[in-house]
């Protein structure tokens, strides 16, 4: 009878051990698709309402930033063309995800890509 009890104890010990390892080795999950979608959708909506292109071309990054609301996240924008980028990549130890939006120009042809960085507060 004592043998059965010990075996049962050993099984319980194994389950506890495995449970502990599962918690300990919890994988680092990168931000999900929905987060990239949020960033992309925010930029697309701004473009659809005519509130993006002029600010990109004029380099008015603060105006773009102020028009985006992604509560409860922080965000910042970076605008790049073929010669370089304007804006800053946020330095934060937390996960950052990016939504990008390409435009070919506003009143004249000049392609840009606007990158929206989003991270948890």
């Amino acid at each position: 009878m004592q043998g059965y009890v010990r075996t049962l104890e050993a099984v319980f010990a194994g389950i506890i051990l495995i449970g502990f390892l599962v918690v300990l080795l919890k994988p680092n999950t990168l931000p999900g698709t929905q987060d990239t979608e949020k960033a992309y959708t925010a930029l697309m909506e701004l473009d659809k309402t005519g509130n993006l292109r002029e600010d990109i071309v004029s380099g008015n990054l603060s105006a773009i930033n102020s028009k985006i609301s992604l509560f409860p996240y922080n965000h910042s924008v970076l605008v790049c063309d073929s010669s370089g980028c304007a804006g800053e990549v946020p330095e934060t130890p937390e996960n950052i995800w990016t939504g990008e939006y390409l435009i070919s120009g506003c009143d004249s042809f000049h392609p840009y890509v606007v990158k929206l960085f989003v991270w948890e507060k």
């Binding site: 990168l30 698709t33 979608e37």
Partner: peptide, 13 residues
């Protein structure tokens, strides 16, 4: 173990 990612959908966007 390691980093897990959801299947990337950014190409769709």
């Amino acid at each position: 173990t390691g980093i897990k990612t959801t299947p990337s959908k950014d190409l769709f966007y």
